[in-house]
Structures are given as C-alpha cells and as structure tokens.
Write a protein that binds this DNA or RNA. Structure first.
Length: 313
DNA sequence: CGATTTTGACCTGCGC
DNA sequence: GCGCAGGTCAAAATCG
C-alpha cells in the first residue's frame, strides 16, 4: 500500500465515534513561529498566545472551502505532507472524554497494582474506549519531536511492510494517559508520522527556554545547528473541564528542516465546512511570518470527511 | 541511583 | 479456531 505508515495508521483512527466539538463550535489552533532559537514554549508564556480558530459552520461546503481559507494563510508546498487528525469513538457525552482520560488512567493504575502478577491480563472494558487520536506527518530527520511534554518510551515494534519500527510513548505525567506513536513513513523516509492518543490532563511541563529537558531532541540529527525549534502539540485549555478534543490546539507550522502539517478530520457527524479564522498577535502578523519565511511551506488544512465505519448505515 | 530506553514475551483484535 | 499484526508489559540495560 502506498505509504503504509500513513495508510495503515490513519484510517484506523477514523473508526467510529465523532468529535465532540465544543458548544461554540470552535477549534482552537496555535499559530507557530520559530523565534530564532526560542521555543514555542516561550510563546506560550506570553499573556496572549497566538491563536487561530477553526470555526465550524454547519451546512457549508467542506473541503474546497477549507482550501480557500487555508490559502489565505500561506502557500502550500510540494514537499509538505498532510496530516490527518481524528478522534475516535469517544462516546457521546462531551464530558466523557475527560472522564475517560481520567478514569482510564486511574483504572490503568489500579490494574497495574492489582493485577500486578497477572501479566498482561489487562482486561479493560469489553467495549474498549479509545482515546481521541490524531496523526500528523512531519518532514524531519528527527524521529521524536519535542512537543513540550515529556514522554517515556514503552515499546517499539516493527511495522509490517515498513523497514522502520514504530515507537510507543506515554506521557510521563502520573495521571496523564496520553500516548503517542512515532513511526517513519516507509514511502518517504524523510517523513515521520506521529499519532497522539488522548488529551493531556495537565499543563505542559516545559518551562521557559533553557529549562528544556536535555532529552529534547531538536536539531540533534542536524547537528543542532540552525536554531532550536519546537512545536507544541495538542494542548487542552485547562480552564475548561469538558474540553473537546478538537478544542485542543492543533498546529501547522514549519521550521528549518522540519515541516509539519496537520489535517483535522471531521467525522460525518460534523460534516461542516470549517473556516479558519486567524488572529495574530503583533509578533505573529502574517507579514512577519512571511518575512521570516516561517510558514511558507505550511500545507493547507484539509478537513476530511470521514464516515466512521462503525457508525455508518 | 533514579529515570529512561531497549527488547522479548505476551495479550488482543481482526480477518480468513 | 488459527494466524497475523498491533499494542503493551516489565525486566534488564543504559544513561545522566
């Protein structure tokens, strides 16, 4: 199959469920910029982090329109890859996602202790409830991108039809059950496919620049030259307890040797037209971005309509 | 010495 | 039911 890493991975993300878009129908996104060595965490420290909203508008045409608005942002390039994002069956109630996160991790913890001896006898609910997930592809030589959170690798598996293994990471935060998978595309070895599952139940642990953990891998394979770039991945708005997955920050940006693209996938339940509304802080004005050539390679968002297989019919 | 990574074994889901 | 592939566990190894 073409691009097994992606083809294998992403479709599975689409199975079942739908997004729990917040009442306002907004999908918040962070705009990114490489501050010439400063990480995005610096940006986040700012009182008014750059932000762009995706506005979900019912009854509007999906893809094409999305393309239009994306073009407002920048010009897609050829070497960029697309990412897909998806949220899997998270059961109806909006709160469930959060609850799932918490209860699941709690349950996991309990299971670990109680069924300690019963190896791998992890009996989760017969009806497994998967966390919302989304994947994105990144043009980078670095496998494990620093997204501001701390991850612990808990497994690695060879992937069928791919010479590259898939790595499994888990957020090191105690109560946070977020996982991520990282694999290199067999089709395009320069592309790394990262799949996130779940939402963080805690603030980004990374403190301002200089406090970044040494495990930060950016620039490593590139000799560390060219400035440090970091990007931030989905991060929930903590003040809002029942945050929907899509209310997380999904980013699309580009830095030196790395181009990351994210494609939000809106399930049929929300077969809306998504318009991108960007509001730039002074430091992130489009002109500035352009001047710096930071986002020029950013690929347009492509909102893909996906019919959850399970729920079709 | 604690935290993280590596790695082989085991579990689970799914297709045949 | 069987086999395959994906996902997870946990002991051992490695790292800082």
């Amino acid at each position: 199959m073409a691009n097994s890493a992606f083809s294998d991975q992403v479709p599975s993300l689409y199975g079942g469920g739908y997004y729990d878009i917040n009442p306002q129908g907004y999908l918040d996104m962070l705009a990114f910029q490489d501050y010439g060595g400063a990480s995005l965490f610096d940006m986040l420290q700012q009182p008014t982090p750059p932000q762009a909203n995706l506005v979900v508008e019912p009854h509007a045409p999906p893809a094409s329109a999305m393309q239009e608005t994306s073009d407002l942002v920048n010009t897609p390039t050829t070497n960029s890859s697309s990412i897909s994002s998806s949220s899997n069956e998270h059961v109806n109630e909006g709160d469930d996602q959060e609850n799932n996160n918490n209860t699941r991790s709690d349950n996991d913890e309990e299971e670990k202790t109680t069924t300690n001896k019963q190896l791998k006898a992890k009996k989760k609910n017969p009806k497994k409830q998967r966390e919302p997930r989304f994947a994105f592809m990144t043009k980078t030589e670095v496998d494990h991108l620093d997204d501001g959170y701390r991850w612990r690798k808990y497994g690695q598996k060879a992937v069928k039809n791919s010479p590259f293994p898939r790595s499994y990471y888990r957020c090191t935060s105690a109560s946070c059950g977020v996982k991520k998978r990282v694999e290199r595309s067999s089709e395009d070895p320069s592309t790394v496919v990262t799949t996130y599952e779940g939402t963080h139940t805690h603030p980004c642990p990374i403190t301002p620049r200089g406090m970044l953990p040494e495990t930060t891998t950016y620039g490593g394979l590139n000799g560390g030259a060219g400035g440090v770039s970091s990007f931030l991945l989905p991060q929930i708005h903590y003040p809002q307890p029942s945050q929907s997955f899509f209310h997380n920050h999904i980013n699309s940006f580009n830095f030196n040797n790395t181009t990351t693209t994210t494609t939000s996938t809106i399930p049929s339940t929300y077969s809306h037209y998504i318009r991108e509304e960007q509001s730039y802080p002074l430091s992130l004005s489009p002109s500035l971005l352009k001047d710096n050539g930071l986002l020029q390679d950013m690929v347009s968002f492509q909102i893909r309509k996906e019919e959850p297989k399970d729920e079709l019919s």
